[in-house]
């Protein structure tokens, strides 16, 4: 019989990923004032995992969330999925960069959240411009999206910081 050994890390990844998927799904149910503008609260989970357990687990949680949430919402392999994945990849890029520096550049979850939100939005925008709507008029929306990214990044950063402080280091 085939048996798969499950480590403690696997269980943690599964738990945090399902938490992130849940947040993602709840958020998807809310109407947005502007298509594409979303608070991105699921990234709070990614950030907390990043700060408590490091980059490797954060990458797992973030990619699992994008995959499973798209399967549940029926957007797997659609443009929405591509945008979602682009955002996640950008965030992973930023997190890798930060974790390459000693003591994470001295950043707390707040600073990291803002950086993640801005790079997430930028990556999505770049992909949308390149793939979906290559019209110069689209660039006019970029400042607006970035403004929302800054605001929501700040809010989710404050939440991440508070939650992380409550949980303490793993």
């Amino acid at each position: 019989m085939l048996s798969v050994s499950v480590t403690r890390e696997d269980r943690l990844i599964a738990g945090f990923a399902s938490l992130a998927i849940l947040v993602h799904l709840i958020e998807a149910a809310f109407p947005s004032p502007l298509p594409g503008v979303k608070p991105g609260l699921a990234n709070i989970i990614t950030l907390i995992v990043f700060f408590r357990y490091g980059l490797r687990m954060a990458v797992w949680v973030s990619l699992l969330r994008v995959l499973v949430a798209s399967l549940l919402l029926g957007s797997f392999l659609s443009p929405t999925f591509a945008l979602s994945l682009a955002g996640a990849v950008a965030v992973i890029g930023i997190l890798s960069l930060i974790s390459a520096f000693p003591s994470r550049f001295g950043l707390s979850p707040l600073g990291v959240a803002v950086l993640c939100a801005l790079s997430h939005t930028s990556a999505q925008f770049l992909l949308a411009y390149w793939l979906l709507v290559p019209h110069p008029g689209l660039l006019g929306l970029y400042p607006i999206f970035m403004t929302f990214a800054l605001i929501f990044g700040f809010i989710s950063g404050v939440i991440s910081q508070k939650v992380y402080r409550q949980l303490g280091a793993a």
């Binding site: 707040l110 600073g111 801005l118 006019g140 970035m146 800054l150």
Partner: peptide, 23 residues
């Protein structure tokens, strides 16, 4: 909140604000 956070926040704010006249 660290000094690095404040720097990131300031930098991000000016970045976003400067996008408006730019684009």
């Amino acid at each position: 909140t660290t000094r690095a956070d404040i720097l990131v926040l300031l930098f991000s704010f000016f970045l976003v604000v400067s996008l408006y006249p730019l684009l």
